[in-house]
């Protein structure tokens, strides 16, 4: 029930953001559409632990901040490499263990790695090891491992 209400709330918020119209009638339409969308979906049961919810929200905010920061930094870094006349790249593929148990955690951490500066997941094997293409191997290994630890810590807080 709680997750149903939460899903309705999220879908309504998305609808309101899209229409940018806060009149009561529009909100009602949004709620009706959200209920309709959820009626078409397969119901999913997940236990919610309210004590963990607080830390999860903080972790989600920090995670979004880390992602946005990564996007800006990777844009700058790749731009610098491309504009450098000598093209200073040392490409390589390294194996990074994802460190997450669930499929969703592995998928999200692969997504975060691909957004991070100079890294892109090429292949994931059955054990959750991500084969990551790195643009500049010179200072990649330690930096990649550290960034991955931070993201895994955040993801484990979000999906305990």
């Amino acid at each position: 029930m709680v997750s149903y209400v939460r899903a309705v709330l999220l879908l309504t918020l998305v609808y309101l953001a899209l229409t940018s119209n806060l009149q009561a009638s529009n909100i009602v339409v949004g709620v009706l559409l959200a209920v309709g969308v959820l009626a078409l979906l397969r119901p999913q049961r997940r236990v919610t632990d309210w004590r963990a919810a607080g830390t999860a929200v903080v972790a989600v905010l920090r995670y979004i901040f880390v992602l946005a920061h990564d996007m800006v930094v990777s844009g700058m870094q790749v731009a610098r490499i491309v504009l450098d006349p000598k093209l200073p790249i040392q490409p390589g593929i390294i194996a990074i263990p994802s460190g997450c148990q669930s499929e969703l955690g592995t998928a999200l951490s692969a997504h975060a790695i691909t957004l991070a500066p100079g890294e892109m997941v090429v292949e994931i094997d059955d054990d959750g090891v991500m084969y990551t293409h790195v643009l500049d191997m010179a200072h990649a290994e330690t930096a990649v491992a550290e960034a991955q630890e931070l993201r895994v810590a955040l993801l484990n807080k979000i999906f305990p």
Binding site: Q90, P91, G92, I93, I94, A95, V122, E123, Y131, H133, M137
Partner: peptide, 10 residues
């Protein structure tokens, strides 16, 4: 495959 890879774990 990559051109001039420094390392290839795959």
């Amino acid at each position: 495959h990559m051109k001039q890879p420094v390392r290839d774990d795959l």
